[in-house]
Amino acid sequence: MEPIVVAKNLTKSYTKGLRALDNVSLTVNQGKVLVVMGPSGSGKSTLIRTFNGLETFDKGELSILGIKVDSTHDERKIQKIRRRVGMVFQQFNLFPHLSILENITLAPVHVQKRRQIEAEEYGMYLLSQMGIDSHAKKYPSQLSGGEQQRVAIARALALKPKLLLFDEPTSALDPERITEVLDAMRRLAEQGMTMIVVTHEIGFAKDVSDQVLFMDSGKVIEKSPPNIFFSNARHERSRKFLNQLDKH
């Protein structure tokens, strides 16, 4: 088994003092799903954004798909990583001036230099996988939140990535729209996609994840398989957090 992500002692502070990441080490192997949990402000977004170079870090070592990056943030290496790592954001971040299909074909055509027709065919295939191929000609603002997020997943898949990053993909959705997005993510996991998912959806984490990583104030507090984490968390801090989640 190949490790896809290897992080050693990642440390980062935005301003002097408070650490957004504090000695974070982790490994994610091929085909595994890692769920990241933790209270707001604990550094979850910062962590997964370092994995595709949207954030830099101050100290430590990081290797993504065998490409090593360090605190110098080498632009060429970052670009190489971004071509193989997809990301899905909390607020979808679709391009409002492009149609759904154009959103999806933009990167394949201009980053991978694939032919327009080929990219459109693959884009339509991805949209049908997500169950939204009938919306291909529409614009993002004409779609519901759940549909937009599925378009965002299809857009991330268009570059045929080896790793998918999700930053709270269902937090901006109405409750009745959450399942359709989670179901799409489940199918991806079944197909063997390597994923790192920041989420508070316990059901999803229990069913799909191989490991749960719990963070607080930039530190990794606990990393356990889901059956242990949700029934018998090792740390006091994790148990408290899960209690609070249950109350909602």
Binding site: L54, F89, F95, H110, R155, A156, L159
Partner: peptide, 28 residues
């Protein structure tokens, strides 16, 4: 800024972001 982040995460370079994301939206 999230538009630029999304484009960055797709591997588009600075000039492509200007051409395909920023200028069309700014002109509109």
């Amino acid at each position: 800024n999230t538009q630029i982040e999304a484009a960055n995460s797709l591997g588009l370079n600075q000039y492509q972001i200007i051409q395909f994301i920023l200028i069309p939206q700014a002109l509109r």
